[in-house]
Amino acid sequence: MELSFMIIDESELDCFIARKIIENTDKSLKVITFHNAKIALTTISETPVDNHLARSIILLDLQMPIMDGFKFVEEFEKLPSTIKNNYIIIILSATMNANDISRVLAYSSVNSILDKPLTREKVYDMLMLVNL
């Protein structure tokens, strides 16, 4: 099964780093980045189900203008499960706020949370998670 990454982060630098680290870990991994969670959500919901053959890990930041990570997850959970089942949401954030962390982990579609910055070890862990 093909695996790809979708990075949703307002910061260009963080998107750049995440892309580099993932590509350096395994050249075959596809990476797409979004600076705006709303556009990412539209892309996910408008991609025909037939094309959802590959699984995607969504690396989602929490604090973003326009649509933040919480709102994104909330809207994502309203999508049909034929779409949702193709994605795994992992939060990638610099937040230290315990309330934010427990709040976002309470969503059933959120798998786990990673502290920024992304490193090669964290990518390995995610790949292990998907293969299990």
Binding site: S11, L13, I17, K20, N24, K116, P117, T119
Partner: peptide, 21 residues
């Protein structure tokens, strides 16, 4: 503080980590 100070700093740290690659 976590978003506006730690956010940019973790970005810089991440960049330094991958600079050697």
């Amino acid at each position: 503080v976590s978003h506006d100070i730690r956010g940019p700093l973790s970005g810089i740290l991440g960049a330094i980590n991958i600079a050697s690659d």
